[in-house]
Amino acid sequence: MFACTKLKQLSAKARSVSINPITDPVQHSEGPFWHTNTQELYFVDTFNGTLCRWSYKDKKTQSYHLENHDSVGVIIPIKDKKDYFLVAADRNVYNLYWPSDDNENEAKLEHLITVDESKPKNQFNDGKADSKGRLWLGTLTRNGDLSVAPEGGSLYKISGFGDSLMAEEMERSLSISNGLDWCPEYKKLYHIDSQTRKIVAYDFDEQSGQIQNKKIIFDMADHPNLEGIPDGMTADGSGNLWIALFGGSAVRIF
C-alpha cells in the first residue's frame, strides 16, 4: 500500500483536485469530522475553545464556545442521537447536547472522564472513534508559550458506558499525539507523533481494541524534499493515507 508506484499514481490524480475555503478563517482549526447523514462538517477552533458546525446545505457555520476551557481537541457526533456529541477539551471528555437550531441556552455539557490528572499542563489534541464506538484520544504537554514539551503525552482508548467508563493508556512518552485512523478492514491502526515526523502502524484487534507490533511505515527524515510535520490523517476506502503537513502547506498521499 505504501509502494512508490501507487504514490506516484495517486499524486498525479491529486494534482487535479481543487482546494477552496468553505469557512471564514479561524485561529487554529483541528479535528474535522464529516457527518454523511446530516451533510455537516464539524471541527474545532482549539485555543478559542470553540466548536464549529458547517452546513453543506446552507453554507453557514454555527459555533459553540466552551466556557472555562483553555483548549478543545475534537467533537464527534454520537451515532443515532441527533445533536449529541462527544467532546474532548483540556484533559476532559464530555457528552454535549448542542441543538441544531444553535440555541446555546438549551445546550448541555456533561462531564464523563478526565485523563492525565497528574499533568495539569496536558491537553487533548486529536482523536477518533473506532468501529465499536471506543474513543481514541491523544494528549500533549503544552508549555506557557504554546510550545510542546517532549514525550509528555499519551494515546488513550476510552471505552464503556456510564459508571463503567474507563480510560486505558495505550501508548506513552508521545510528544504531539496527532492524526490517527484505521485501514478499511480494521486490522491496522495508524498513528502520528508529529514531533518525530513518523507515521506508525499497529496490528489492531477490532473486537478487543488491543494494539501490538508497532512499526514505522513512513519516516519523513527519509524524504528531505518534504517540508513541515505530519499532522492530521485520514484513510480512504482503498487504504491510502492522506496526511496534512503542518508547516508544509500540503496534503500528501502515502
Rank of each mutant, 00 (worst) to 15 (best):
F2C: 03
T5K: 07
L7Q: 11
L10F: 15
A14T: 06
R15V: 08
V17Y: 10
I22D: 06
I22C: 01
T23V: 09
D24V: 02
D24P: 00
V26M: 12
S29F: 00
F33P: 09
T36A: 12
T38A: 07
V44A: 09
F47H: 01
T50M: 02
L51I: 08
R53A: 03
S55C: 09
D58P: 00
Q62W: 08
Q62S: 09
L66M: 10
H69I: 01
V74G: 02
I76C: 01
P77Y: 08
I78Y: 03
D80S: 14
K81V: 13
K82S: 14
A88H: 06
Y94K: 01
N95Y: 11
Y97W: 03
Y97C: 03
D101T: 08
N103E: 07
N105T: 12
E110P: 01
L112C: 10
T114W: 02
P120K: 00
K121M: 01
K121H: 04
K121C: 03
G133E: 10
L137Y: 06
G138K: 01
N143E: 11
N143M: 08
D145W: 03
P150M: 04
E151L: 13
E151Q: 14
Y156H: 07
I158A: 00
S159H: 13
S164Y: 14
L165K: 08
E169A: 12
E169T: 07
M170Y: 02
E171V: 07
E171I: 14
S173A: 13
I176V: 15
P184N: 13
E185Q: 13
K188P: 07
Y190N: 03
I192S: 03
I192Y: 07
D193T: 08
Q195S: 15
T196K: 10
I199S: 10
V200N: 08
V200W: 12
Y202M: 01
Y202I: 02
E206P: 04
E206C: 11
K215V: 14
D222G: 01
D222L: 15
P224Y: 11
P224C: 11
N225I: 08
G228I: 14
D231S: 04
M233I: 12
S238V: 00
L241M: 15
L241N: 09
I243A: 11
A244V: 15
S249A: 15
F254Y: 15
